[in-house]
Amino acid sequence: MNLREVKQLLDAEVLLGEESLDKEIKTVFACDLMSDVLAFVEDKTILLTGLVNPHTIRTAEMMDINAVVFVRGKTPDEETLKLAKETNIVILSTKHILYTSCGILYSNGLCGANLVTR
Rank of each mutant, 00 (worst) to 15 (best):
67 A>I: 10
100 T>E: 14
2 N>R: 04
71 V>W: 04
37 V>R: 02
15 L>A: 01
93 S>R: 04
85 K>I: 11
70 F>K: 01
118 R>T: 09
58 R>Q: 10
28 V>F: 00
7 K>Q: 12
84 A>G: 07
20 S>T: 08
28 V>R: 02
57 I>Y: 13
58 R>V: 08
36 D>I: 00
79 E>R: 14
87 T>S: 09
8 Q>G: 01
31 C>Q: 09
17 G>N: 06
60 A>T: 02
82 K>Q: 09
32 D>S: 11
50 G>N: 03
86 E>L: 11
64 D>W: 10
44 K>E: 14
62 M>C: 10
48 L>S: 06
64 D>K: 14
43 D>T: 05
13 E>K: 14
59 T>P: 04
48 L>F: 08
26 K>F: 03
21 L>K: 01
47 L>T: 02
3 L>W: 01
36 D>F: 02
85 K>R: 15
92 L>I: 00
88 N>F: 11
80 T>L: 02
28 V>L: 00
55 H>Y: 14
75 T>G: 10
19 E>D: 09
59 T>D: 03
93 S>C: 09
106 Y>S: 12
115 L>A: 11
61 E>P: 07
12 A>Y: 01
61 E>R: 05
44 K>S: 13
76 P>D: 04
88 N>Q: 15
97 I>R: 09
25 I>L: 00
85 K>S: 14
41 V>T: 15
8 Q>N: 08
55 H>F: 14
20 S>E: 14
84 A>W: 08
92 L>P: 03
